[in-house]
Simulated assay, not measured.
Amino acid sequence: MKNFLQTTLLVAGAALASGTWAAGGKPLAKECGPNNDYVIGFSQANFKEPYREHVNHELERLVKKYPKFKLVIADGQASVNTQVSQVENFMTQRVDLLMISPFEAAPLTPAVSAVYKAGVPVIELDRKTTGENYTAFVGGDNRAIAKEAGEWAAKTLLPEGGEAAVLEGLPSSSPAIERLEGFKAGIASNPKIKLVAVQPVNWMEDQAVTVFSAMLQAHPDIKLVYTSNDLAAAGAYIAAKQAGKVGQVKIIGTDGLPGPSGGIRAVADGQWAATFTYPTGAAQALELAKKILIDCATEVPRSVIVPTQRIDQANAKAFYGKEKF
Rank of each mutant, 00 (worst) to 15 (best):
G24R: 11
S228A: 15
N202M: 08
R61A: 11
P171S: 14
A144K: 08
P107K: 02
R179E: 01
Q313I: 06
V55D: 05
V196D: 10
E168I: 08
A136Q: 04
M204D: 15
M99Y: 06
N133R: 02
I305L: 13
V211A: 11
Q309A: 14
Y237N: 09
F319H: 12
V120Y: 02
S228C: 10
V196W: 05
P27A: 07
K245C: 10
N35H: 08
M99K: 07
E323N: 10
D312K: 11
K68Y: 03
P121C: 04
E205R: 15
S101V: 03
E104D: 13
L157V: 15
A165C: 07
L16G: 14
I294Y: 00
K68E: 12
A214E: 14
A29N: 12
V122F: 04
N35L: 11
K322M: 02
L170T: 14
A197P: 01
K26G: 07
I73V: 15
L167M: 12
Q6D: 12
E49T: 05
A146M: 01
K250G: 02
A208R: 09
K223P: 05
V209L: 06
T308Q: 08
A106R: 12
F319G: 07
P258S: 03
G131D: 06
L5S: 14
T210D: 10
A316K: 09
A111G: 01
G140K: 09
R127C: 08
N46G: 15
P307S: 06
E88W: 06
G270W: 13
A45P: 00
G140F: 04
E124N: 09
Y116D: 08
Y51P: 03
A314Y: 07
R302K: 15
L5I: 15
A314H: 14
Q44V: 05
A234D: 04
Y51L: 04
S228Y: 00
P220V: 03
N56D: 10
T109C: 08
T92C: 00
F212I: 02
L28R: 10
A146V: 03
K290Q: 13
L97V: 06
V63S: 14
S172D: 07
T82A: 13
S174I: 04
A105W: 03
A106F: 02
Y320V: 02
H57M: 02
A314I: 07
E287M: 08
L293M: 07
V196H: 04
T7M: 01
K65V: 01
G262F: 13
A282N: 12
C32W: 05
G270R: 02
P307F: 02
A240R: 04
Q309Y: 01
Q309E: 00
V72P: 01
A236Q: 13
S189C: 06
Y278L: 12
S172N: 11
Y320C: 02
L5T: 08
D141V: 00
N315R: 09
F137L: 08
K184L: 14
K147P: 00
A176D: 08
V72M: 11
T275G: 11
E181W: 01
P307W: 05
K64L: 12
H57G: 02
V306Y: 12
G33S: 12
G256A: 12
G182I: 04
